[in-house]
Nucleic acid binder design. Structure first.
Lengths: 209, 209
DNA sequence: TGAATTTTGTACTTCATCGCATAATATGTA
DNA sequence: TACATATTATGCGATGAAGTACAAAATTCA
């Protein structure tokens, strides 16, 4: 048997000096920094301060600034899609479902400590997408994916007779995505949460009319 | 009479060495640089290269980087509002009017040499709006102004019987703005112009249904 | 106890960025 | 022609940013 005096955990530790951070929470803190100031507006020192890691550790763990950003961006999409997957599940009226989707999004857009921050993608990645092919593809694929989720859910409502049979599910899905985008933009532009909730209600009513 | 041998223009020139640039075109070129790389991603050297002016001249003419950006942003809104004012004028069917509004917007979003660039506000200012109160207010005011233009035009169509009397003009205006925003975002994310034109057609059909 | 291993922390180098000081240039005015 | 004026052009200094080399620290393994 092996000696385990120094390792009280059940999990087997790797060999050298243990990490002083959890990779997932560190990446989350790095994302917070990017979320605040954007990609170009965030320095490695900012990331270092946000994560509590020094620059060499940051590099060893996640790569350079661009690598860190791409990881944070992908992680954001993952969480957003997971959330939307839950919220858009069938079983409730379409209007209620859409409203909850926007409410869930607002929960993310106003998740900053003290101040709102909008959508990570719309607020930071869209700016970089023009000159950064990697970011551009991640952003583009995400938007298309969200369109598809909305379309599937709306098409379901149409098939079940909740919407008139002659509506265009694609068109309504685009309006649903557009509403998400406009909320994301306005949140970062400082519009208050209640105003955006009211906007969502009006938009949903118009889409489901 | 004064001697005018050196001044062939009819306009009275100021006293010292003449400027080597036109302020308006220089500001436009500076805006192009910001439009490409965003506020934080653009250096004074970039602006210098884009305008052909050296840094001291830039500063003397427009102030520091932030001043230049704010001037470019305000100028962009001015031109966009002028364009929307023309396009949203009454006299044609609402659907045709909205379609032309999106077409005009696409004309701006694809006005870059060779490559698309999206909306200056959505693509660059929204990122800064979070931490820059001056930018935030300009952005927010602009969005609210565009909402109002759309609402007025839609309300006119409703009052004239073009839309059913029980539609909510505010709600439809929000969808019209949202459609503009989603087009702006997607253009910067690299979606082709034809796709966005098709999107606009579907959105307009759904809004005016 | 000591070697091996992995991470941390400090510091150094290089380059970019910004503001400003100063000289050169091009005009109008006397 | 000389001078005043306003701009352009060059360059310096301080600061920030990014990458990396190297020693110190904390752990596992023999």
């Amino acid at each position: 048997m092996q000696d385990r005096t120094k390792n009280t955990d059940a999990t087997k530790r790797p060999r050298g000096r243990p990490r002083a951070y959890e990779p997932e929470t560190a990446l989350r803190h790095a994302a917070d920094a990017f979320w605040r100031s954007g990609y170009a507006g965030t320095s490695l020192d900012d990331l270092s301060a946000a994560t509590g890691m020094n620059r060499p550790s940051l590099r060893a763990a996640f790569g350079d600034k661009h690598d860190i950003y791409v990881k944070a961006l992908s992680d954001y999409w993952d969480r957003k899609f997971a959330l939307m997957g839950e919220v858009l599940a069938p079983g409730r009226p379409l209007a209620e479902t859409l409203l909850q989707a926007y409410d869930a999004a607002l929960g993310i857009y106003f998740s900053g400590e003290g101040q709102p921050r909008g959508c990570f993608v719309v607020g930071t990645a869209v700016t970089e997408a023009l000159e950064d092919p990697v970011v551009r593809e991640i952003v583009s694929d995400g938007f298309i994916g969200l369109d598809a989720r909305f379309r599937d859910r709306i098409e379901l409502a149409r098939a079940e007779g909740e919407l008139s049979a002659d509506v265009d599910s694609d068109a309504l899905a685009l309006l649903a995505s557009a509403t998400m985008h406009t909320i994301a933009i306005r949140a970062r532009a400082g519009r208050p949460r209640e105003e955006l909730q009211a906007l969502a209600r009006k938009a949903v009513a118009a889409i489901c009319r």
